[in-house]
Design a binder for these strands. Structure first.
Lengths: 230, 230
DNA sequence: TTATCTTAGTGTTAAATTTACAATAAGTAA
DNA sequence: TTACTTATTGTAAATTTAACACTAAGATAA
């Protein structure tokens, strides 16, 4: 039985990027304003059709860079969405990816069909283009489980941070309150935070100690069978 | 800037199914022998190109039924693989799905380009067609985390089973040894196993009690905030 | 310089959970 | 009746989690 292969090679694949950031208080996500149809003037996840000559996992960074100027990020795949009518221009299935970055370390340069690029509080995100609300929701779920089992939260903080900042980050991502004493005990006993010896500056109260995430130490512990868990 | 959309709508999307089963001793996976090129005569995951007019999540069952006769299963998405050269006939990205079934409940009827369909011990699987070894590996990882956090293992056992069978199942999936007393305590305290009152038959030793998974009870507990965890 | 304000930082105890561990029970088969 | 095989069960120690409130250190204002 010969199969007419041509009819199968008629789909497009797109990639949508969920870039998370943290401003010290709220978990944020980077959105672009679409300057073209479809969904012109809607806020959307940075995403675009994938060139057929690119690897799916590599294409993510190209697409994000085109739209926002951000480059060379480490993405994790979330889920693939393949409803028939999810894209008005044709049959497009899309794969969602997420990443975490320090907001202040990057400059946003919207281009291509992105007329703007802006950080939004995750909790305040309204209606997005396409099925991007679903993609965002799925990404948040994945982020929540990832952040509990791997030390990826530090990607969202400045290199030197206080334990209070770290706790606020976890509270924002997990959307729960944590007990300060228990949280600090748990983190410190894991032995991969290094005191810098420095203190916070320009605060009108007792300054907190500044810590760093010691990646090498973490990898050593990991090899010994240590399991991160918050 | 107008975009030449046509060049994007030239990909195909395929679906690969990882069907897990359990024979009382080993975790198994259902493979087909390919009767057509490419990879003719290779063992492979049941999988095929998706019709452009089907929903990705619905297409899974059609494809599996075509190749193996199995129908109406509940699948969970695993991951999407999009390397450029993963398929020799063109640009095909594929999404992997897994499901769990009771081996004895289904009859295998290989058809279409599947010349055979057969259960293989997961640990004994050799080289498969395409990148199916990677897809299988990723599915096993996902199965392992899923089986610890949701009561899906019961899908692999007969409706009535002994606690020893359940333990063997978990040991096979997680590839670890469990302490019998602690395992039974943990499972029983969760309160969603129902004694049938029956005993094992035709065994030449003390017969074990037969249990059932009480799905309604589980859902009640779940609503009350109970969290399955093994 | 002293008092006040604000956030940083810390320890203990009870409860719950996990772990380690071995003897008895209930059948079948010889 | 005995031997054999697998099923079934409890306890104590160790670890982890959970709950909870006061002192410390700096900046600022009186």
């Amino acid at each position: 039985m010969e199969k007419n292969l041509e009819k199968y090679f008629t789909l497009a694949v797109s990639i949508d990027c969920v870039v998370f950031g943290f401003d010290g208080k709220d978990l944020k996500v980077l959105l672009i304003k679409r300057g073209e149809v479809p969904f012109k003037d809607f806020w959307a996840l940075p995403g675009d059709l994938m060139s057929p000559d690119e690897d799916l996992n590599f294409s993510v960074n190209h697409i994000l860079k085109d739209l926002t100027g951000l480059s060379d990020l480490f993405f994790e795949q979330v889920e693939t969405f393949g409803e028939i009518k999810r894209h008005p221009l044709g049959r497009v299935i899309t794969t969602g990816y997420f990443t975490l970055i320090k907001i202040g370390d990057y400059e946003l340069n919207p281009s291509s069909f992105a007329s703007k690029a802006k950080w939004f509080k995750v909790k305040k995100v309204k209606e997005l283009a396409f099925d991007h609300n679903k993609i965002l929701e799925s990404s948040i779920n994945k982020l929540q489980t990832s952040v509990r089992t791997r030390p990826i939260g530090f990607e969202l903080l400045p290199q030197e941070f206080t334990l209070t900042e770290l706790q606020l980050l976890y509270e924002a991502i997990l959307d729960i309150k944590l007990d300060t004493r228990n949280f600090r005990k748990k983190i410190i006993q894991m032995k991969f935070l290094k005191e810098t010896g420095k203190l916070q500056e320009n605060v009108s109260h007792r300054p907190a100690k500044l810590f760093q995430f010691d990646k090498k130490q973490y990898e050593i512990l990991e090899k010994k069978g240590f399991n991160f868990e918050v």
